[in-house]
Amino acid sequence: MANVLVNAPKTAKRGSIVEIKALILHPMETGFRPGPNGRIIPRNIIERFTATWNGTEIFDMEMSPAIAANPFVSFFAVASESGTVGLRWTGDEGFVVEERVAIAVE
C-alpha cells in the first residue's frame, strides 16, 4: 500500500534552488522491540531513499532503525533543466515504492 506525499514546485527558474519534500507511510520497525507475545518483532525499515532528476542521481540517503515511522525527507536541488524527479524508497520485506513529479524549468 504505497502512500506518499510529495511537495515539489511545478515550475522553477533555470539555475534556482528548489526544495523537494517527501513523506511516506512506513512503520520503520526497529527490530529491537518485543511484541505482545514477548518475541522480537522482525526489523522492517526503509533502507535507502534515492532521488533522480531525468535519470541522474541527485540525492541518496541510507536510513537506519533510529529513524522514526513515516519518514519525512527534505532536500534541495538546482533546477537546470525541465524534467521528472524520480523518488524511490527501498527496504526490508521487499519494500519498493516509486513516485514521480514533473518540474518545468523556464
Binding site: M1, N3, L5, N7, L23, N70, F72
Partner: peptide
C-alpha cells in the same frame, strides 16, 4: 498546517 508535511494526511489519503 502543511498538508504535505502533516503525517496525518497520509492516513487521510489512505
Amino acid at each position: 498546517d502543511d498538508d504535505t508535511a502533516n503525517p496525518g494526511m497520509l492516513f487521510v489519503q489512505l
